[in-house]
């Protein structure tokens, strides 16, 4: 039971009241309604307003969090543990989101899961060449994981220049990846409306690309925070989270490359019923 002699003042950070949660929720409402109006009428400005409002909310909210992180005594070591746990949990939820799209891919491509499946790739679909851009992008993304790890070690060793340079290289590699991805989409011989192959291909790789963008922006923020003297060798949860996120995106890509681009684009005649 609680005993008076040994109880101590707590070391948790209880945030002050904030307007951003309700501002963010109203922004989400605007974005949702705007999105529906766009899908049914083609009028896009309501949706874009919602996107801007959501991004505004993120900026002002994360600004508060960063200010708190840089205020001594708020993000105590136990609070940092909590932040790490929560970010790992967030990544777990992201994994389950991608799980749905991988399931869509395997449900469509494996006859054992799907009684009405035809050939895979479906007839008439001209697939992308696995060992061209997809493989190049694999090398780019894996390299970016390595440069990010160098940056992380540099931060721990308090070598700020090296930390900043390698973070910047990682961000640049991320955007090069995205550029190739956009190019690949533009030269693909199929479009989104061409049936189940493009459906699974574009949503799985598209959501991955969107996550690369998020990760790159996350790292860009870390770069500028680092330039402004944020992060200490023993206190850099923000950077650590960005690094974890980047590695998560990397792993998703490996699964996409192996399954969707490589295995999924070879004719699977031996698997047909």
């Amino acid at each position: 039971m609680a005993s008076d002699a040994t109880s101590k003042p707590h070391h948790w950070h209880v945030a002050d009241p904030s307007p951003w949660p309700i501002v963010g929720s109203v922004s989400a409402l605007v974005m949702a309604v705007g999105g529906i109006i766009y899908m049914h009428t083609g009028f896009i400005w309501g949706f874009l307003l919602g996107v801007v409002l959501v991004m505004y909310t993120m900026v002002v909210w994360f600004k508060d969090v960063i200010l708190e992180a840089e205020t001594p005594g708020l993000h105590t070591p136990p609070v940092q543990v909590g932040l790490r746990i929560s970010f790992l949990l967030f990544i777990v939820s992201e994994v389950m989101f991608f799980f749905a799209f991988f399931w869509a891919f395997f449900h469509s491509s494996l006859p054992i899961l799907n009684l009405v499946a035809g050939a895979w790739p479906p007839e008439g679909i001209e697939v992308l060449h696995t060992w061209d851009i997809p493989f190049l992008n694999t090398l780019i993304l894996l390299s970016s994981g390595a440069t990010l790890t160098i940056a992380h070690h540099a931060l721990i060793e308090n070598n700020r220049d090296r930390f900043l340079n390698y973070t910047l290289i990682t961000v640049i590699l991320g955007f090069i990846f995205l550029g190739f991805q956009i190019f690949e989409y533009s030269v693909a011989a199929f479009s989104l409306q061409d049936g189940i192959y493009p459906s699974t291909f574009f949503l799985a790789t598209g959501f991955h690309g969107f996550h690369v963008l998020i990760g790159a922006v996350f790292l860009t923020v870390c770069y500028f925070r680092g330039r402004n003297g944020h992060f200490k060798p023993d206190h850099h949860v923000g950077f650590e989270a960005a690094a974890w996120y980047w590695h998560f995106v990397d792993v998703v890509w490996l699964f996409l490359f192996i399954n969707v681009y490589w295995w999924g684009s070879s004719p699977l005649g031996h698997l047909q019923p």
């Binding site: 994994v95 749905a100 189940i196 574009f202």
Partner: peptide, 24 residues
């Protein structure tokens, strides 16, 4: 944490089926 993101994925596919021409 584990179940709702799968629903989110499913809803996204339904949304794109309804509005953007996918055929999940």
């Amino acid at each position: 944490l584990l179940a709702l993101p799968v629903l989110a994925g499913a809803l996204t596919m339904l949304l794109t089926d309804r509005n953007f021409g996918t055929t999940f």
